[in-house]
Computed example of a mutant assay.
Amino acid sequence: MNRAERAQMAMMLEVSAYPKPGNVDRCHDYADTRLEHFLASTILVRPVFDAAERPGGRVGSLIREAVMRTNGHSGGNTHFGAFILLIPLILGGDIEGARRVVAGTDVADAIEFYAAFGLTEVRVGESADLDVNDPASVAAIRERGMTLLDIMAYSADRDMVAREWTNGFSLTRRSADLLHAHGPGREGIVAAFLDLLASEPDTFIAKKHGAAVAERTMRCAAEVLRGERDLAPFDAECVEAGINPGSIADITIAGIYVALGEGWQWDS
């Protein structure tokens, strides 16, 4: 399996595993985003992953192209955070290579990323002053000479996907390790997802519902792991309230990509 195939498989396997509390999977959809939208994005992005596997690709333009290719359905952009993690991993081959890729980003990458961000409906934290919808932000990026790694560092305190770029992909590494520990297939994916959710407040939830809800969701996941709460009702509660741990899902995808490259079995 080459790197592009592994990335596709990671996206497909994550959305197919169930139940992952609050997230779209084969058992439930949201009104505006369904399982089919996630699977369609997995297919539509393949040319970008192929390009990332060839020499000379730039991370900013590849993220923008991935967003453009997967914006053609009514489900919105399903995998923006996953692309932020997967494309450096494909370019670099593994976590060490991804660290070198992000360290080598430049101002052009940052501007391409902002163009990609502007094509999504991803929530921006209220404290963000580099507004993706404000043309002055691009001018400010040029003026300050900000690389894409600088942009991620700027966002790291309020966005756990951006934080992966600044902490050496540490949660991605942990996600892969959890998959190895929990074993193969969808049961391993769900177990790894719950472990992450129980230990990290999801920043996608925090942006949508506030930090208190993200913290409460983390505590509830820990109760599931301790056997104090049943998983199915917790999942149903999250879906009903629209509590979607999207950032944990993105990091889980990246972890699956890494684990697949290390011999983790998805079909055992």
Score class of each variant (00 low, 15 high):
262 E>D: 06
1 M>F: 07
262 E>I: 00
84 I>Q: 15
268 S>V: 08
54 R>S: 12
165 W>A: 10
131 D>R: 14
38 F>C: 05
226 R>N: 06
47 P>G: 03
109 D>Q: 03
209 H>Y: 03
117 F>I: 12
45 V>N: 05
27 C>R: 15
37 H>S: 09
112 E>R: 01
228 E>F: 02
161 V>R: 03
102 V>T: 12
20 K>Q: 02
147 T>A: 07
34 R>M: 09
28 H>Q: 14
117 F>Q: 13
88 P>H: 04
105 T>I: 12
195 D>H: 13
33 T>Y: 01
99 R>E: 13
67 V>A: 10
79 H>I: 05
148 L>F: 14
225 L>I: 12
249 A>E: 04
158 R>Q: 04
11 M>L: 15
233 P>S: 05
259 A>S: 10
222 A>N: 07
73 H>V: 10
232 A>E: 14
41 S>G: 15
153 A>P: 00
69 R>T: 04
84 I>K: 13
172 T>P: 03
128 A>I: 15
43 I>T: 14
177 D>Y: 00
6 R>Q: 08
237 E>Y: 10
218 M>R: 15
125 G>W: 06
92 G>K: 07
50 D>R: 14
14 E>W: 10
23 N>Q: 07
27 C>G: 09
65 E>H: 05
265 Q>W: 00
45 V>T: 08
162 A>N: 01
120 T>A: 07
145 G>M: 08
223 E>Y: 03
45 V>G: 10
88 P>F: 09
246 G>V: 05
178 L>K: 08
94 D>M: 02
148 L>K: 10
180 H>D: 05
23 N>Y: 02
167 N>T: 15
119 L>G: 00
207 K>W: 08
63 I>E: 01
97 G>H: 13
242 G>F: 04
48 V>E: 04
252 T>S: 15
121 E>Y: 11
37 H>Y: 02
4 A>K: 05
77 N>E: 05
97 G>S: 12
103 A>S: 13
23 N>C: 02
241 A>D: 06
246 G>S: 11
112 E>L: 00
143 E>W: 02
153 A>S: 08
144 R>Q: 14
147 T>L: 07
110 A>Q: 10
113 F>I: 03
